[in-house]
Structure formats: structure tokens, C-alpha cells
């Protein structure tokens, strides 16, 4: 793939699958500035890895791997990385949220539970909530399909328990 085609491919997948980056960033980084940093890092990693893309994988599988790896690594570093982006002066993303939305309010509640999960459990939870098959989750995480089932079962139980506690 030549440079121009790579650029078109890159811009295409970013536009088409921006939701993946957004959801992963939002799950791992409650702070909006951090979300922007992590999304930018995801985009850089996607661009730098684009020559390695193997079409035997679904593009979403590939993007989830990169975005989750970046988000988890960002959590590990826990430092402001704004100084690395001096060359990108313009606002990267514009996020417009309707704070009064009932769905948003309920989502905040669910996110509160997700935020209590460990880092790899969070990855598992995003993929489960996004209705990914156990096979695809196994490919993204690098664990067996049966292990995916076991882990998801345990997390679901914990979440149900928390929701029922809240109701009572």
C-alpha cells in the first residue's frame, strides 16, 4: 500500500470507527483532557501500525487491540503527556454531551461500576457490552474462549449484585 492509500485508509477507518476510540477512552479516562490525549495516542499508534494491518482480522478487532493497549498503557504511565503534542496545536476532538439526558445519567451509574473494575476487566466489560462474540473477545484479549465465558460470567454477577444493592 503506498503512502497516499495508507492515508486514505487511515482517515477512513478513523472516521468510520471513531466510536471505538471514543468509548475506550471514555471508559479508561474520566477526565476529558486525558480522553483527548489518549485518543490522539491511539490515532498515532493506528497510523504507525497501519502497514502491519492484516486483513485476516476484522478491522474492529485490530482497532480494539490498539485502543485498549494504549488506554491501559496510559493508565500505567499516569502522567500528563500534553508536552509531547506541541506540534498538534488544534483541538483534536470536540465532544458535545447532553448532560440532561436520562440515558447519560443512567450510563454514569453503569460507568461508576465499570470504573471499579480492574484494567483488564474493564476491557472485557467494554467488549461484552458492545456485544462482541466470545471468539472475538478472545482474539482481542489473547485468552481462550472458555476463559472469556468464565470471566464475563463473574463480572456480570458482580454488576448484577451492585445494581440490586442499589435498588434495595
Amino acid at each position: 500500500m503506498d503512502k497516499q492509500k495508507q492515508q486514505q485508509f487511515f482517515e477512513g477507518i478513523i472516521e468510520q470507527h471513531k466510536g471505538i476510540l471514543f468509548k475506550v477512552a471514555r471508559t479508561y479516562c474520566p477526565n476529558v483532557d486525558d480522553q483527548q490525549d489518549v485518543i490522539q495516542e491511539m490515532m498515532i499508534q493506528i497510523w504507525q501500525s497501519i502497514h502491519k494491518y492484516n486483513d485476516q482480522f476484522k478491522i474492529s478487532t485490530w482497532l480494539y487491540r490498539i485502543s485498549l493497549n494504549v488506554a491501559i498503557s496510559f493508565y500505567r504511565k499516569n502522567t500528563t503527556r500534553a508536552e509531547k503534542y506541541t506540534e498538534l496545536n488544534e483541538q483534536l476532538v470536540e465532544i458535545s454531551l447532553d448532560d440532561k439526558s436520562e440515558n447519560e445519567r443512567q450510563l454514569k451509574l453503569l460507568e461508576q461500576f465499570i470504573s471499579e473494575l480492574k484494567e483488564i476487566e474493564k476491557a472485557l466489560m467494554i467488549l461484552y457490552l458492545e456485544d462482541k462474540s466470545h471468539t472475538e473477545i478472545a482474539e482481542i484479549l489473547g485468552i481462550s474462549v472458555s476463559n472469556v465465558g468464565t470471566k464475563i460470567g463473574r463480572i456480570k454477577e458482580r454488576l448484577k449484585k451492585r445494581f440490586s444493592q442499589l435498588k434495595s
Binding site: Q6, Q7, F10, E11, I14, E15, K18, G19, F22, K23, R26, I39, Q40, M43, I44, W47, E87, L88, E90, Q91, L92, V93, E94, I95, S96, L97, D98, S101, N103, E104, Q106, L107
Partner: peptide, 20 residues
């Protein structure tokens, strides 16, 4: 809810080009 939020999430096209 996330899909709705993602719809409102706009990536600055200039930055996408800059990254390349």
C-alpha cells in the same frame, strides 16, 4: 447512550491529516 455520544464526537480532520 454511547452511540449517541459517539455521534457527537467529532475528530478534527486536520489533526488526522497532521498525524500522517
Amino acid at each position: 447512550t454511547n452511540d449517541k455520544l459517539a455521534e457527537n464526537f467529532v475528530i478534527n480532520k486536520k489533526n488526522t491529516e497532521d498525524i500522517t
